[in-house]
């Protein structure tokens, strides 16, 4: 599992991904951690296949007892099917996930972890002195869906928005936006169901100050590529399977 520090300030953002030992027939995913003085939040901690390499990688940055929070943008297995294992590893942690999906996500096993349901209009996660905003992203692609915005680091963890289907070992960052478009087009057209939801999200996100847009699959967007992505997504017709 590769680890890349994408922000270093009063706290850190670390991206985990491109796991070399991942079975070839499961989709590659990016996991993220926010590390503060005494706490660690894992975002989109991944599928159960990924638990061991992910936990081993996190141990380079935080001890188990300081992994206090998990976040799942939605209910998909590549996002959070490892929940039952985190549940047995972490003695007192919270899972921040859509209220809409609570009774569904509990199928993965959630006995010792406290499920903190995120209401439809969003909320916050406080880690020491860092406050993260939970931005509604419903129907992108899941009916109950949130992204995480860090106003201090100016990072938006955007779940499946901005995702791309890449060859194994792809670079961590978008290097040439134009050539990256084709890697994203099908994913967004097929997985995102609603143009109305897309427009509402873009309007909301354009008001945020974003340096880094960090999706759950594919490469991370930096600087001007963030605006390029929003402009491209704005013109894209989604929900094309019907």
């Amino acid at each position: 599992m590769k680890m890349t520090k994408i922000y270093e300030g009063s706290h850190q953002w670390i991206m985990f991904g491109r796991d070399e030992h991942k079975p070839a027939n499961i989709i590659d995913s990016n996991q993220y951690a926010v590390r503060t003085a005494n706490r660690c939040l894992l975002m989109e901690p991944g599928g159960s296949e990924l638990f061991a390499p992910m936990m081993a990688a996190v141990l380079h940055h935080a001890p188990v007892e300081q992994i206090t929070d998990l976040f799942a943008s939605h209910q998909d297995p590549d996002v959070i099917s490892s929940l039952g294992l985190w549940d047995q590893a972490l003695s007192s942690a919270k899972l921040h996930a859509p209220a809409l999906w609570e009774s569904f996500l509990r199928h993965f096993g959630c006995e010792s972890i406290e499920y903190v349901p995120i209401p439809d209009n969003g909320g916050t996660i406080k880690l020491d002195s860092v406050e993260l905003q939970l931005i509604p992203a419903h129907y992108l692609h899941s009916s109950g869906n949130f992204h995480v915005y860090d106003p201090q680091a100016k990072i938006l963890m955007s779940g499946d928005v901005g995702a791309a289907l890449e060859a194994p070992g792809a670079p961590m960052f978008v290097e040439n936006f134009d050539s990256h478009i084709e890697k994203m087009r099908y994913f967004h057209q097929r997985w995102m169901p609603s143009n109305q939801a897309k427009r509402a999200w873009i309007e909301r996100v354009r008001n945020l100050d974003i340096d880094i847009l960090a999706p759950q699959h594919g490469r991370i967007f930096k600087g001007d590529d963030v605006k390029r992505f929003l402009d491209w997504f704005d013109t894209l017709q989604v929900g094309t399977a019907v």
């Binding site: 638990f51 936990m55 081993a56 141990l59 380079h60 940055h61 935080a62 007892e65 294992l85 047995q88």
Partner: peptide, 24 residues
């Protein structure tokens, strides 16, 4: 879980906080 945790301890050798996996 036990099997996965065993894998974690093997894979995290040399990690700064590897020892913290012993309790789980």
């Amino acid at each position: 879980a036990y099997n996965k945790f065993e894998q974690v301890t093997k894979m995290s050798e040399g990690a700064a906080y590897a020892q913290s996996m012993q309790a789980p």
